[in-house]
Computed example of a mutant assay.
Amino acid sequence: MKKLMNDSRYVVEEMVEGYVKAHPDLIKQLPENDRALVTAKETREGKVGVLIGGGSGHEPGFLGYVGEGMADGVAVGNIFASPSPDPILEVTKAIDKGAGVVYLYGNYAGDVMNFGMAAEMADLEEDIEVGMALATDDVASAPKEEKEKRRGIAGEFFIFKATGAAADFGYNLEDVVRVAKKANENTRSMGVGLTPCSLPQTGEPSFEIGDDEMEIGLGHHGEPGVEKGPLQSADEVTERLVNDILEDIEINSGDKVAVLVNGLGSTSRMELYTMFRKVEQMLSELGIEIYRSYVGDYITSLEMGGASITLMKLDDELIKTIDHPVNCPMFVQK
């Protein structure tokens, strides 16, 4: 499994260096830690800081969502691994404008531990108040009665968007955290894996799957899904993913949703738009309005083949956050 790289030990550092050099007007690297990136635009005093983070290999997540209208900073981890507490703390210090900082991250053991440690350090060493919200949108990763155990996958994009907007609106820390948790509570995702990716350090497939197989519910690090079987048509796969989501969250006729059809890295736009076509048909038949749609690579897994579908149930407050303009290096919304 080929990759364009130099030394596999330094792929993250070289990616970050290239990223910062490509977008100097939007992003900057903190001198205290090369895994700590913040917006190059000066943020106002009294604004709640929004810090996101996670492992590399999910680009444009997570570093691609730092900018006006979304996150103020990101802590970058190794490939598919949590960032350590040190860059998290450095970003926290850099983006604190006196109103506190909210941490947004996926529900993975390493992230929970490291972001928790950084929050304690920010409180004890820097007297910075930190709020936290976890992404738990993956319906395949735990049953409904154990939602707190679920992973965060592509729905993290909607949570970042809603939270960044709330901070821009001038909400205080408590309300920014409330919006983040509300966004998570109203967001569900389900994915399908078709082909594995390979880690630069090993060059080996991240999981095994037959040429004529697919895996429903596969995690974006290659975590096992709920069902492996023969590859089905785009419509059949889409029906399965959407139906599983709608069984998990109450969305009724007349409700509005934001829809994300997300590629995992090597899935073509042709396939993703074919899937969106079926999503639109299904929701239209149920009387559910698609308020905004996003189709493309938003949270990937290196070159993994497959896709996920995310629905975010909207109310008036969440509609305002989804509509809010954004200017990030890898995502712009006017």
Rank of each mutant, 00 (worst) to 15 (best):
S8Q: 10
A22Y: 05
A22K: 14
H23T: 14
P24W: 11
N33G: 04
L37S: 11
L37K: 08
G46E: 10
K47P: 06
G49V: 02
S56C: 11
S56I: 03
P60D: 04
F62L: 13
V66Y: 00
V66P: 00
V74G: 02
A81Y: 01
P83S: 07
S84N: 02
D86P: 00
A99Q: 05
Y103W: 05
Y105R: 04
G110Y: 04
D111F: 07
V112C: 12
M113C: 01
M113F: 08
D123M: 12
A133W: 02
L134G: 06
D137S: 09
K147N: 12
T163G: 08
D168Q: 14
D168R: 11
N172C: 07
E174Q: 13
E174N: 13
V179K: 07
K181F: 07
R188S: 09
M190S: 12
V192P: 04
G193H: 02
L218Y: 07
G219I: 01
H221C: 06
E223A: 08
P224F: 07
E227A: 13
Q232I: 14
A234E: 13
D235K: 14
E236P: 05
E239R: 14
R240L: 12
D244Y: 12
D248R: 14
I251S: 11
L260P: 03
R269T: 08
Y273S: 10
V279I: 12
Q281I: 13
E285W: 08
E285M: 12
I288G: 06
E289A: 09
I290N: 06
S293I: 00
Y294R: 00
D297F: 05
T300W: 05
D316T: 11
I319Y: 03
N327M: 11
M330V: 03
